[in-house]
Amino acid sequence: MLISIGHVTRYTYGLPASCSVHTLRLTPPSFEGQKVLSWRVEMPEIAGAVQYRDAFGNVSHLVSIPRSYDEISIIARGVVETKDKSGLVRGLMEAAPVRIFLRETPKTAPDSNIRALVADVAQADPIDRMHDLMRLVGERVEYAVGTTTASTSAAEALRVGRGVCQDHAHVFISAARLMGFPARYVSGYFLTGDVLGSEAQHAWAEVYINGLGWLGFDPANQICPTESYIRLGCGLDSLSAAPITGNRTGGGNENLDVFVEVQQQSSAQQQ
């Protein structure tokens, strides 16, 4: 499937901001199920960006803006060709040994609720166990916007029983690690059919299964990723996989607008 993506992140500030630095993990990789045909990241000073691969293999850019400004837009756009691999992620340039993804982080630290969740997982086969876990996470964390924030942890999300894709992924990862499976947080896009808005920005999880490799699970949609998924980057949790992080001086109140447009293209539209 050919998919075009336009992802605009706009920050506006109450007071002039200055001397900012931004880390971008906004460049999707190519692998067996995904081929990046074209991709561009635009923002002020991007020409002078420092490019590198981070600990989890993500292509990253460090951009610094030495002057002051009231508004800034970061735009990522391009065309990606996807294939349905039943959620299997193969042919990705892997940077770190798999076992690193067993590491607990503050956002994925398990509590008694997550332990109880793990205890309820039936099945014996590893893949079946993960599917069962995905089902349980979907049941126990209802999709609801506005209850949780970007800083909510897995344990908190499970306790309130509501959350968004980030929370589903965190709960899933926390439980999977507790069960001994290396698991990682994945950021990306999802072809929803909606035209505009930020819903198409998405997050899910990948679990390493011995003998098989990394397998994606999207507890928010209760499926393994299909050709409708575009994989951007991964990390131990939403912090280390964040597509955009930054630090600035001044700025006062920050207002953030995100627009993501993900559309299927017919081959005739191919660039």
Binding site: R53, D54, A55, F56, A95, A96, P97, R99, I100, L102, R103, E104, L236, S240
Partner: peptide, 24 residues
């Protein structure tokens, strides 16, 4: 770790281990 000389969890879950340093 692969050689089994140091236990995996002693590294991976150690707070002194910094995963961001992998591959530098």
């Amino acid at each position: 770790i692969r050689a089994g000389k140091v236990p995996e969890e002693l590294i991976v879950s150690n707070s002194a281990f910094v995963p961001e340093m992998m591959g530098v």
